[in-house]
């Protein structure tokens, strides 16, 4: 999967599954402060990512993920490790 396809898919999942307003989506948006993703939403993101990308996120790997761009990069790295 190409990187831009991954980003488009993540955005779609955030809008449709986590119900984040589309106009709030931007790479620099802080996941917690700007998008309002709380600890319970992260639990649901684990499930959503597994069912859509086929891998399980690890909580310890998420420690440095603050912005949406961080999140894109994390998913891209897991989908395309090379």
């Amino acid at each position: 999967m190409q990187n831009d396809e991954i980003i488009t898919k993540i955005n779609s999942l955030l809008i449709n599954e986590i119900e984040i307003d589309a106009d709030q989506i931007s790479p620099e948006a802080d996941l917690k402060r700007d998008l309002g993703i709380d600890s319970l939403d992260f639990v649901d993101l684990f499930v959503i990512i597994e069912s859509n990308f086929g891998f399980k996120m690890k909580a310890e790997e998420m420690a440095g993920v603050k912005t949406l761009e961080d999140f894109y990069n994390y998913i891209i790295h897991r989908v395309n490790p090379n």
Partner: peptide
């Protein structure tokens, strides 16, 4: 086989 797949609700 993974409780993390149950979700928050």
């Amino acid at each position: 086989k993974d409780s993390m797949m149950i979700g928050s609700g």
